[in-house]
């Protein structure tokens, strides 16, 4: 047996005993029958059991992934909202603090002003009282000056002219002179 004869046998088909098996029509019924049977069973099992099963797994996974993505985006949205709310409350608090400071300042100012006014009035009253007192004292003092001048003038006149003079006359003169000289 050599390679050459094998090659020749292959090239010439099988001329010796049997026909070429793939073209042997006597086997066709059997092949067709078993092909349709096995392929039919396969098709049935695939369509009814196996492919729905496999497709179910794939669908479940893609649903799960879609769900997870949804959840993730929802959570992100919630986080954003929370962030916004935080900013809002922060700025609110800031505004409120500002307000409080402002009103406090205003009320303190009002109070301060009222007290200042009271204090001013008190001061003014006291000044007025002091002024009247000073006025009175000055008048009294001025009155005394006239008296002293009158008495001094009387003494001077009595000493210089050795003559008695009425204190009333002196007083009138002094008064007249004082008015004239201012």
């Amino acid at each position: 047996m050599s390679g050459l004869t094998i090659m020749m046998a292959a090239a010439s088909g099988t001329k010796d005993v049997q026909t070429f098996a793939p073209l042997d029509t006597s086997t066709f019924p059997s092949q067709l029958f078993w092909l349709f049977l096995t392929f039919g069973v396969l098709l049935f099992l695939l369509a009814k059991v196996l492919l729905p099963r496999l497709g179910g797994i794939l669908e479940e996974r893609s649903n799960r992934i879609a769900d997870d993505l949804d959840t993730a985006s929802r959570m992100q949205r919630e986080a954003e909202l929370a962030g916004k709310a935080y900013e809002q409350s922060l700025s609110d608090a800031r505004a409120k603090a500002h307000n409080v400071a402002e009103t406090t300042r205003a009320s303190v100012n009002v109070e301060l002003e009222a007290e200042m006014q009271i204090a001013d009035e008190e001061t003014a009253r006291q000044m007025a009282r002091a002024e009247t007192k000073i006025q009175a004292m000055r008048e009294k003092a001025l009155a005394n000056v006239d008296e002293i001048a009158s008495e001094t003038a009387k003494a001077l006149v009595e000493h210089l002219y050795s003559k008695k003079i009425s204190i009333v006359t002196v007083r009138k003169t002094v008064k007249r002179l004082a008015i004239k000289t201012g």
Binding site: T27, P29, S30, Q31, F33, W34, T38, F39
Partner: peptide, 16 residues
């Protein structure tokens, strides 16, 4: 019809 179970049928069954 000869529908004998052959080596071909066997391999079909094996494949399925």
């Amino acid at each position: 019809y000869d529908i004998s179970f052959t080596n071909s049928s066997f391999m079909m069954v094996v494949a399925v």
